[in-house]
Design a protein around this nucleic acid. Structure first.
Length: 198
DNA sequence: AGGGTGATTAGG
DNA sequence: CTAATCACCCTC
């Protein structure tokens, strides 16, 4: 394959995201083949953490392509993103789900005995299965402890697109892609409706 | 359907 | 400072 990961990550994020389907994310003995991703378009995207500009939390997203942006949410979960575009911009691809292709024993232990298809089915589960946490935020996916390796593109006929999961802002943008028929794709969950205060 | 858990942000 | 929100997962 002539195409490199960095070349892919420098394309517009709406092209880069689906191109990452099938790529393999590895940490230690565990490796996951990506089956579901979402694009976040930084300053152009009200749904992105980076929409309101750089903060300590979002600093990694404003760094160079190939960085790993890990954030902590809901008091207990980590989620992982691949940083795209040149430094100073803040687009990223959220890694929503994958199929464990190596180290299933370790991943299963970390995931409390979950069945194989659930090991990395969801962004926080994926991080848990791979042992990714806040200490990996800002590391480089080409040289750091967590590596991402491009695979052959998944044929377009097998790729499905739809709305992103769990967002209230820009919930209509169909910026999620997954591999059709993959049991590891996370279930669609619309954002919780906001109740009027009373 | 509802709870857990804590960082981040908007607002007084 | 307080209150609301949050790119989620688990159990019931």
């Amino acid at each position: 394959m002539t195409e490199t990961l960095l070349e892919v990550l420098h394309r517009p994020v709406l092209e880069a995201a689906p191109r990452l389907l099938g790529a393999v994310l590895a940490h230690g003995d565990v490796a996951v083949r990506l089956t579901e991703v979402e694009a976040y378009a930084g300053a152009d995207d009200p749904g992105s953490h980076a929409f309101r500009g750089e903060t300590p939390r979002t600093r990694t997203m404003f760094g160079p392509a190939g960085g790993l942006y890990v954030y902590f949410v809901y008091g207990m979960h980590f989620c992982a993103n691949v940083v795209c575009g040149p430094s100073g911009t803040a687009s990223a691809v959220l890694l929503r789900a994958g199929e464990v292709v190596s180290g299933a024993d370790v991943a299963t232990r970390r995931r409390g005995g979950a069945p194989p298809r659930d090991l990395a089915r969801g962004p926080a589960r994926l991080c848990r299965a791979l042992g990714i946490s806040g200490e990996h935020d800002g590391t480089d996916l080409l040289t750091g402890p967590v590596r991402l390796e491009l695979a052959e593109p998944v044929p377009a006929s097998q790729v499905v697109t739809g709305p992103r999961v769990g967002l209230r802002q820009a919930a209509d943008r169909p910026w999620r892609w997954w591999v059709e028929g993959e049991p590891s794709v996370s279930p669609y969950r619309p954002a919780a409706p906001r109740r009027p205060r009373g």
